[in-house]
Every structure is written in C-alpha cells, then in structure tokens.
Design a protein around this nucleic acid. Structure first.
Lengths: 94, 94
DNA sequence: GCAATATTTAGATAGTTGTCTAATTATCTG
DNA sequence: CAGATAATTAGACAACTATCTAAATATTGC
C-alpha cells in the first residue's frame, strides 16, 4: 500500500464523498459527478488522485469510464490504523 | 470525531511518525523532537495539528509538556474506514 | 528577580493543492 | 467522415501548508 498517497487522497472531503458514493456499486464518472457542484475537470482531478492511491479502479465501457471501489486498500488502511496504538486488541470504549 | 481534522492530520508523514513514536508511551515535546531533523517550532506546529484533531493529549509537567496518544480517536477513524466499503464484514484477502 | 531551559506563537516564504476555463482525446451514431 | 457526448489533460490562479527565524511565554533553581 502506498501509505502516503492513500492518506493524502483521504484528506479531501470531496474524495471521501466520492468513495462513499461508490459504496453502492460501480458508477461512471458522469454519474458520480452529478452529485457534485463542480466541473467535470475538477472531478477528474480527484479521480486521478484516488486512482493513484489505488483506492478506485477504472474500466472503460464504451464512451463511459466506470469507477469502482478497491476495498482491499481501504481495508489495509484501516488495519494499519488499528496497529497504530498500544496494546488494546479490540476494546474501544467509544 | 472531527473527521476532516483527523484525516488532514494523518496526511502528513511527520505527524504519522510522531504518533508512531508515541505508541511506546507518553513523551515530552523535546523527546519526540530529538528524532526529527526539524526545528522545535515546526514540531510544535505539528503537535498543534494533532491536538486539534484530538489525536494526542497534552499535560504540563513542570517545564515540560508531555504528549500521549489518544487511542480512542484512532480507533474511531479505523472503524470509520472499515465502514467505508460494501458488505465485507471482516474478510480481507490482502 | 534573573538566567537557563522547554515550548509555543508570530510572521515570512516556498511549495503544494483544489478549482476553473479551454483544449484535447476517445467513442458512438447517423 | 462529421457531429455529439464523455472524460481527461494543460495551464493559470488563489488558498493552504510546512518550514524557517525571531520573539514571546512558562517554569525551575540559584
């Protein structure tokens, strides 16, 4: 996992929202963009960052490009965080 | 959890290294700083960001200021991430 | 109270990032 | 092939961030 890229990608709220939208399944760039008040170019930039971090995968389908979550990397990140503190195995007294 | 602050805090490699150093237990600002090739002022800035994200706690002890990990928030963040993808409960085929 | 030590705050600056408009690439359809 | 649609790339710009030096604040011990 490219730790730095992943954390940087997650640091932006728009990108986290994109990931959230992808929870329900793969979507085209246009479908994702419909939910954001932002130009397609800006969204495309965010897609690029997410892709570089390996958080999403892409597949061209005709004139569309379909984005989907790469759950594996998100899981790795979460695991990494769980490892980031002392002895507590799975407690968590929120 | 202040999601945005936490993610922003985690996005910097120096700050992640600081958190890592704190895994072994509480340390003074100076003790932490000894491991970094950076002025105390710069480190102090990073401490402030970590504190604002509630990732660390501080306590003054004499002329020192002691920093310690706030495991709860790190746990919350990890949990949040685990929730960020579809149905997989705890699989993870790394 | 003064000097020494530990840390933070203030102000400046270079580099990074998010956004935009305009132009480009890729695909489909008539 | 020409036109339309989907998406990316290029270039510019304002806002943010990490770092530095210098100054300020807090605490200890003489």
């Amino acid at each position: 996992m490219k730790q730095q890229e992943v954390f940087k990608a997650m640091a932006d709220p728009t990108r986290r929202a994109i990931l959230k939208r992808l929870q329900g399944g793969a979507l085209t760039a246009g479908e994702i963009g419909a939910a954001f008040d932002m130009t397609a170019a800006s969204l495309s930039h965010h897609f690029a960052v997410l892709k570089q971090a390996d958080l999403v995968r892409t597949e061209r389908r005709g004139q569309f490009i379909v984005y989907s979550l790469n759950s594996t990397v998100v899981e790795d990140l979460a695991r990494m965080l769980f490892d980031l503190f002392p002895g507590k195995p799975g407690a968590g007294d929120k």
